[in-house]
């Protein structure tokens, strides 16, 4: 009976857990003291990351958003990375259509930003090869996490067989996402890093 109940409500349970995680992260940021420049900067980066989704909306899996979120996290730290990632998903979905997938995307991109922030801690320079490698992994991670939602939401029954089938089906798309991330990192990585670093210095100096 209990297992049956859980099976029925997995979509709801996962939805609630993810929303709570996101809200806790937001709350942590809310408590922190931050100046207006940082707020405006986060808003701008979230908008840029969100806008970059729109021309690529047709090619589902190639998403510059992941790269932009990650480079922001790399320069400005984990917390900023998470907020930019989560909000870019939320904001862009106001234009592309909200759905039960929104919290999942918020979490995925938030985690990408958070991981990049951990990678970039105490680093003065951008190691393109390392960054591209991590961003490629992030592409796969994004797909794998979104697969859980696909599997819970669209695939019945929830068995190991269908789970593996879902992952196998998404593999080409995840690979495209990863390759796209590597390409964006190599092409835009250096210039984005320098620009963001310059604004970070200004941010630190002014506050």
């Amino acid at each position: 009976m209990i297992t049956k109940l859980l099976e029925i409500n997995w979509v709801l349970v996962s939805f609630v857990i993810i929303v709570i995680i996101i809200l806790l992260m937001f709350r942590k940021y809310e408590k922190k003291k931050s100046d207006t420049k940082e707020i405006a900067l986060i808003g701008t980066m979230a908008a840029i990351a969100g806008v970059s989704r729109i021309p690529f909306a047709v090619v589902m899996s190639v998403q510059p958003t992941t790269f932009i979120v990650m480079i922001t996290g790399y320069v400005f730290g984990s917390q900023t990375g998470f907020i930019v990632g989560a909000l870019s998903a939320l904001v862009s979905n106001f234009f592309l259509g909200q759905g039960p997938w929104t919290p999942w995307q918020m979490l995925c991109w938030g985690m990408c930003g958070l991981a990049a922030g951990k990678l970039g801690k105490n680093k003065k320079e951008l190691n393109i090869i390392l960054f591209a490698g991590i961003s490629a992994f992030a592409g796969y991670f994004f797909g794998w996490t979104m697969n859980i939602w696909h599997w819970l939401g669209f695939v019945y029954p929830l068995t190991l067989k269908t789970f593996l089938a879902t992952y196998a089906a998404s593999f080409p798309f995840d690979t495209l996402h990863a390759v796209g991330n590597i390409a964006f990192s190599i092409i835009f990585g250096k210039s984005f890093f320098l620009i963001l670093l310059r604004f970070k210095k200004r941010l630190v100096k002014s506050s």
């Binding site: 707020i39 908008a47 806008v51």
Partner: peptide, 20 residues
């Protein structure tokens, strides 16, 4: 509940058409 985050969201919604 959360004035900063909401402010950031509304700000970036406003920036969308501007960026384009």
């Amino acid at each position: 509940f959360s004035s900063k985050i909401i402010f950031i969201v509304i700000l970036s919604i406003r920036l969308f058409p501007l960026l384009i």
